[in-house]
Every structure is written in C-alpha cells, then in structure tokens.
Design a protein around this nucleic acid. Structure first.
Lengths: 283, 283
DNA sequence: ATTATAGATGAGTTTAGCGCATCTATAGGT
DNA sequence: ACCTATAGATGCGCTAAACTCATCTATAAT
C-alpha cells in the first residue's frame, strides 16, 4: 500500500471539520496523531493538502478534491458497516401474536441473559417489509414449508384453566374455545381427529371460536373454561400451573412454525437465536 | 474505530478475487494475514462473511452486500488518490512552440536529473483543456497579467548566425528576420524602439516576417542571416555559439511569459518546476 | 491412494501508529 | 500593545496492531 488508510481517515475527518483538533476528537486521537497522519500523507503524495495559516488550516484545491472522494468513499463503507453491525448485534423477529405473547416474549429475557451482547426485537403483524436481517417465524401448512425450515410441528390437545374440574365428556354440555384462522388456506385445528383419537363425539360439545389461539387460551383462563390449542402455546402455562391437562391424548396437525430459508441467516446472533428457539419449542 | 480499515481492505480484495491467497498477493501480504484480518472482521461484526468450504471460500449474503459497499468506497478513494499522485509526481506544461523548442525541451533533461522523481510532459498548441494540474506558460502583454504571475519580461535584440560578419548598418541593405504574431492583440516586437535606441533607421532594412520567433531564428541560422528576437530564446544559442550578438543594445518590450494563478499550484512538483523555470529564464 | 494447495490457528516478531514534551505562531481579550 | 490561551508542528520513545512463521486440517487434483 502506498498510503495508509488511517491517514486518509484522519485527513477526511480534518477536511470535513476544518480542524485537526476536532478531527482528533472525532477519531479519539490526539491532535498530534492527526498532524502526523496528514503530514505523512502530504509527503507521500508530494502534495500539500492544507494551507497552514499559523494556527489555522484550510484545504488547498487538491485537498478539497481529495476530501470529496474520501468522504464519499468512507461514508459508503461506514453505512454498510453500520447495517451489518446492526444485524450482528441484534435479532429482529416477526411472528404471530400468539407465539410472540405465549412463547417468545416470556422467554426473551432468558435468552438475553444467556447472550448479553445480543438484543431481541419482537414484532407481530404483517409488516413483512421482507427487510433483510429480519427473521420471520411463519405459521402455516407443513407441506408448504421446506423441511429444513420447520422449527416446530404443532400438536393439539384440550387444556383447562387451573382449578377447573375435569369434564365428564358424556353427560353435560361442554364449551370449548378453539380457533378459526382468518386465513382460510390454513388447515383447521384438528378437533375431529382429536375427538376420534380420544373416542369422543361432537354430541355435547359447543364450540366458541377466536381468530387467534392466544384469545381462546386467555378466555379459558378468564372463565375457568376449556381450550383446544397447540401444545406449543400451552406448555409454559402448564408449567406455571395456569393451565392443566387431562387424561386426553394429543393429536398431531398439519400446522407448523417455520422460518423461510432458515439456513441463510449468517449473523452469529441470528444463528444463536434460531438454535435457541428451536430448542425451546422442542424440549 | 470499531473495525480496522486494513481488515476491510483485505476483505474487499478477498471478496473481489474470491480467494485469500490472491488477495494476499494483491496486497503484498501473506495469506495468513488476510485470514487473520477476515476472521477478526467477522468476530467484531458478529457475522460470517465467507462460507468456508474446506479449502475454498465463497461470500455469504451479508458478505457480498458488504463487499459491494467496500469495493465502491475504496475504488472511489483509490481513483482520487491516483489522480493526486499523478499530479504529485509529474508536471505537465503547455506553452508556445518557441519557448518549448528553444528553452523548455533543451533544459528538460537537466531538471529531471536534478529531480529524479519528477517527470515533465511538455505540450504546445492551444489544447487548453484547462484541465486541472496542467501548468500553462502563456505569452502575452505584460499589462494583462497579474504581476505575481509573470516569470519573465521580454527584451529584444538583433542576433546573427555564427560566423556572419557584423553588419555595417549604414551602407548595405540588410535583411532582418522578425516576428508578426498571428494573434493581433499582442504587442509587436519593439523594432522601432530598438532602432531608436541604437541610433539607426529603417532606411537599409528589409524585414522578413514569421508568425513564430522560433522560425525566424532557425531561418537566420540556416541562411547566415540576422534575426530580431527575444533574448530569452536567443540565450541558449548564444552560449552554444550558434548565434552571436553584436555591439547593439537590448530593448525592453511589453511582452512577457506568465503563468495564470501561478501561486495556486500546490503540488510539490509544480512548485519545484515553477521555481526552476523562473530561475532558468532570469539567470 | 498420493500429492499439492488453500485456508485456520497459535505464538513470536516487527513496525506503524500514537502520545508526550516541547516549540511556534496567532487569535482574542484586557 | 501586551499577555494569554489555543492550534498546530516536530522529535523521540513506547505499545498495540499487524504481520510472518511453523504447524495443522481439509480437499482438489492426479
């Protein structure tokens, strides 16, 4: 290399700020270092870049031409670096309200404790800017997702609020909260399968539908009722004794959570997060 | 600074060439150094920039985004640097054919010997691109030039080819080569003044005019004749005994050589050259 | 299978970059 | 007009960053 890049950086700063002292502050250096750098640059290029008017400096013609180019060049590089660093030290996730509220947000703290240098931003809703560096955890039909992208296949069961007495499936009329997705192309919750597997029928069952699993679960807890929902969402509440499960059997569904092109996330933080969330969901 | 510029430079090169080894060669480093730089970069940014496929590397998505920016940025800077360095290590001059042929070109070698790191390009003709970094040595009316720009005021005299017998001004008819500028706004050579100062008259004088002093001088030498020209151009030929001067007195003229905005040239080489040529012309 | 090559890794060495002390010139206040 | 405070220049010594060397691994080529 003919000239040092650090010298150019010092020059760029000094040129932009019109002062070696200010440049030194910006770069966390002493004015001495800046002076050395610029002197070095001038002698290597055989050009004077600043007019020295006693204790004041001003750019020469050549100096300002060079300053234009260095400023533009370094700005371009700095912007790209900032982008990359943002991506490297934070994880931005978007997903459904239900997964966010029931799993991600409650566990967020645990992850950030284990990885103090990585911060997580969780957003819900369809603001799929498809902006690079955002990790989308999608909810959908398992047959539409690449196998390697799937992080959790959904199983369903009936859960009851804490303290509710186990229902007697034959005698009384039972109200069950369940979900009817807004998006009609999604497979329905496998209630029919579940009844079959548990050798029950529709006779005494009354359904109450919400468009997000989250709402059914909350309603069940609020009204001491029953909810038919995914084990994924119920798990934490079971452990916390806010929900209970009965002697019923879990059924698989065609639903899953997946991250499109999961393996294309290259930042350390994204990789850490994806490993972690996959572990959380499947433990 | 968060990341080292040299590491970025190494990354840019490796990204562009697709190989650490080639990058190392380009930067005159060992592959080890490039590997260290890129590893360092990746760990500081918390991002992997290259996929390592055994002994082969390829950019990740993030890597190629960053590479785009760094390549653009460094290219911009490098181009500007090259411009400046060209200006710093070479002098480009344009001037009249006469000054070029009679003074600049014959002395060019001497300057380049004294300043081995500076090369001179001399061009004539009106290709005044007004391109930056070109030094124009103009020939014109002294009253039109800034005083500080003038590097030589012209004096004129009669000179004869080597071996020609001094003319007897009174008896015979004498042919004198002189100049009539193409550019009519230039002051004529001060032949009238010269005759007056030397107490001679037009009686026996026959003029032959060229549009450049150079031609008159060459013609005089070729035909053993006399030429009325500037001392500036004659000087070197006098020393070389190719021309001789007589007992006549020199007269000043309103003509001069000047360099517009002479003091605005900031490159070391331009400054060196200007000092040197001013010295040559006035010694 | 064997060899040659690209890159990774760790430790030792060199040098570029930086700060300190000192000096000069000047802007700004009294 | 003088004094003071400030910006920058310069020379020298130190340290951390950058580089190389030796060694190791994986893989492409033959």
């Amino acid at each position: 290399m003919q000239v040092s890049l650090q010298a150019l950086k010092a020059f760029e700063s000094a040129a932009r700020l019109g002062s070696f002292k200010l440049a030194a502050e910006e770069l966390s250096l002493t004015p001495t270092a800046v002076s050395h750098h610029i002197g070095n640059l001038e002698s290597r290029l055989n050009v004077s870049l600043f007019h020295r008017q006693g204790r004041r400096v001003s750019l020469t013609g050549t100096g300002s031409r060079l300053a234009k180019a260095t400023s533009d060049g370094f700005r371009k590089i700095d912007n790209a670096l900032e982008e990359v660093m943002k991506a490297g030290n934070a994880v931005r996730v978007t997903t459904t309200s239900s997964l966010a509220a029931m799993v991600l947000i409650p566990s967020q703290h645990e992850f950030e404790q284990a990885n103090p240098d990585i911060s997580i931003e969780i957003s819900t809703g369809e603001s799929v800017d498809s902006q690079s560096y955002i990790i989308p955890i999608r909810f959908g039909d398992v047959s539409f997702a690449k196998e390697s992208d799937v992080i959790r296949t959904e199983s369903f069961n009936i859960f009851g609020a804490h303290g509710v007495t186990p229902p007697s499936w034959s005698n009384e009329t039972i109200t069950i909260f369940t979900t009817e997705w807004k998006n009609k192309s999604l497979p329905d919750p496998p209630l029919a399968d579940w009844l079959k597997k548990n050798e029950l029928d529709w006779a005494n069952i009354k359904l109450k539908k919400f468009d997000q699993e989250l709402f059914g679960i909350q309603q069940a807890m609020a009204e001491n009722g029953l909810v038919f929902c995914s084990t994924t969402l119920a798990e934490r509440l079971l452990k916390a004794n806010l929900l209970q499960q009965f002697e019923t059997k879990t059924v698989k569904s065609d639903l899953c959570y997946y991250v499109p092109n999961k393996d294309s996330f290259e930042t350390r933080s994204a990789v850490m997060f994806l490993n972690w969330i996959e572990n959380i969901l499947n433990r």
